[in-house]
Amino acid sequence: MLEIDRLGKTYENPGRSVEAIRSLTFEVAAGELVCVVGPSGCGKTTLLRMVAGLLPASTGEVRLDGVPVTGPPPRMAVVFQEYGRSLFPWMTVWQNVELPLKEKKVPAPRRRELVTQSLESVGLADAAQAHPWQLSGGMQQRVAIARAVAYEPQVMLMDEPFAAVDAQTRADLEDLILRLWRDLEVTTLFVTHDIDEAVYLGQRVIVLSSSPTVVTEDLKIDLPPDRDQLKTRSLPRFGELRGHVYARIQAARG
């Protein structure tokens, strides 16, 4: 479904050029949930922006269903880290979630259906008439997720979406993502700096090196598919996997 083929990014500045990302190659199959981790500054967000079509690549390409991505593709949704800034403050929660559907020219009854369902699925059915700034951080991120879900995308990209929320909320949101992913079977690429989160959520974890970045490992997560915050995280295999990833990242940091 999603092919990242020798993707590279070099920043040209007057005088010097910086090779941020050397070459990244991996795939995400349809319906898979793949996590990407790496040391700070390795270009995780840059990678995500290139996959989203928001940033042009210097070398290599991204292909969605075989078609190269040159700009934001129509069936792709993104959930940003800065949830507060990704919602329109002058619109209500309902209007925020509805907006992409209006742009897609989805007829009104279907829109109403999608928005209602997605708000319910993130547990915000009561907050539809509120404005984003009246909600807590976790709730705002849920609105952004609802918006992405209502959009019925082929691919969902998430850029460290829970980095700026507290641990308790993070746990809830992680489970929410898992549930939604399972229900919708949507191809998901999840970027995070949190190793535990990556192992907990992903079917595979892509480990990145530090800059100039390459893929150091494409790790299959062989944990039982039914993830649970308590049970799964206390499994010995969980500890092994996270330890392995941790060691890889430490090594990559040199």
């Binding site: 989203a52 928001l54 700009g71 934001p72 949704a77 940003f80 990704s86 329109f88 992409p100 742009e103």
Partner: peptide, 28 residues
Amino acid sequence: DGVLADTCRMYGVRGGSRLRRFVLPGAG
């Protein structure tokens, strides 16, 4: 806001729609 601008790009909010729903209220 750049994040809102990216959101618009991702969800196909362009042209007159972008003006009405993003630019004018944002610069309001």
